[in-house]
């Protein structure tokens, strides 16, 4: 399998360590996403972008560190609550509100991450799920979250206090910039020496230990980075939809995002984006069938695990014989 070092790299992007075909995909993605709001409902596109970030955060752990977190709703949801609270009650501008959300996600990620990495495999998944459920109960009882009602009518405010975000198109461009900034940062992290060590841990933890790597420190940092990214997604979502509710912290959300990663391809960089787009579109077009959405999602889960484990992008990557 060709590694990216053997592929000719466009000079300005050598620092990013991005092979040309990845660059083409990024540019293609940017082009499609720039045209999309003129063809599709911008709010739907923003929803896709937020969930794509969220799915990427899960995939940083699952795909690159081999850790299945079944509790990422905790970071997504709490960030969404704190961002909504900061924007509505403290009157902060949207970028600061989102930063507050990311702050709480990082804090939670530090606490739960430090504890969860003490167990491996399925225990790790159960521990993260249990902690997320604890956060859910907290959100259910804490006064500032508004219980069953959630935090509604969050003001979108003005970016840096200058650019009002009330218009959906303006908002879309803002989210698109956030999305690409995070995506490039994530790309850099995954293709850095740090990312290589993560993959080594994923493939054979004992070997990484014997090579002298402090495996737990790497896992911990990956966990916190992943929680932070989930926080960006959650905070942005709260500002865009002007709403933070219990749905965002509930375990079904954690499951949904794992499904997105799985459909897209969990060992690929671009897979979660595709998966998120598909799941969000599916929910959007199946909204009329009510509870059947849950059944269909469950069936997709089962079918993916049995028949299509590599996911869509993973399948394409194996056909092209290139990592995507």
């Amino acid at each position: 399998m060709p590694t990216h070092s053997s592929v000719p790299v466009a000079a300005p992007f050598r620092k990013l360590g991005m092979p040309r075909y990845h660059l083409m995909i990024m540019l293609g993605l940017a082009a499609v996403l720039s045209v999309a709001p003129f063809l599709l409902y911008p709010i739907l596109m923003i929803k896709i972008l937020c969930f794509a970030l969220f799915a990427c955060s899960v995939n940083l752990l699952l795909g690159y560190a081999g850790l299945l977190s079944f509790g990422h709703a905790a970071y997504f949801g709490m960030s969404s609550y704190v961002a909504a609270h900061a924007a509505k009650v403290w009157g902060l501008s949207p970028e600061l509100a989102i930063l507050c959300g990311v702050g709480i996600a990082v804090l939670l990620g530090c606490i739960f991450g430090a504890l969860a990495i003490r167990r491996q495999g399925i225990y790790f998944a159960m521990v993260t799920l249990a902690f997320a459920q604890m956060v859910y109960f907290f959100a259910l009882q804490a006064p500032f979250t508004g219980g069953e009602d959630g935090i509604q009518k969050v003001p979108r405010g003005a970016l840096f206090g200058l650019i009002p975000l009330a218009d959906d198109k303006t908002l879309y461009w803002f989210v698109l910039v956030v999305f690409f900034a995070c995506l490039l940062a994530l790309y850099r992290i995954i293709h850095s020496p740090f990312g290589q060590v993560l993959k080594a841990i994923r493939d054979n933890e004992a070997r990484a230990v014997s090579l002298g790597y402090r495996v737990n420190q790497y896992k911990f940092i990956a966990f916190v980075l992943s929680a932070a990214l989930a926080g960006v997604a959650g905070g942005t979502k709260a500002i865009v939809f002007q709403l933070a509710t219990l749905t965002d912290v509930y375990w079904t959300m954690s499951g949904e995002v794992v499904l997105m990663t799985l459909i897209g391809g969990m060992y690929t960089f671009f897979g979660p984006i595709v998966g998120a787009a598909l799941v969000v579109l599916m929910q959007n077009y199946l909204a009329s069938v009510g509870d059947w959405v849950t059944v269909i999602q469950g069936l997709v889960f089962v079918a993916c695990v049995l028949l299509f484990r590599e996911g869509i992008v993973g399948f394409i990557a194996s056909k092209l014989k290139r990592p995507l």
Partner: peptide, 18 residues
């Protein structure tokens, strides 16, 4: 082992949803 957990998670969604 993670696949078993994910598959049974899907099953739980199907059963509960039905």
């Amino acid at each position: 082992h993670l696949y078993g957990m994910i598959l049974t998670f899907g099953l739980a969604l199907v059963i509960t949803g039905l």
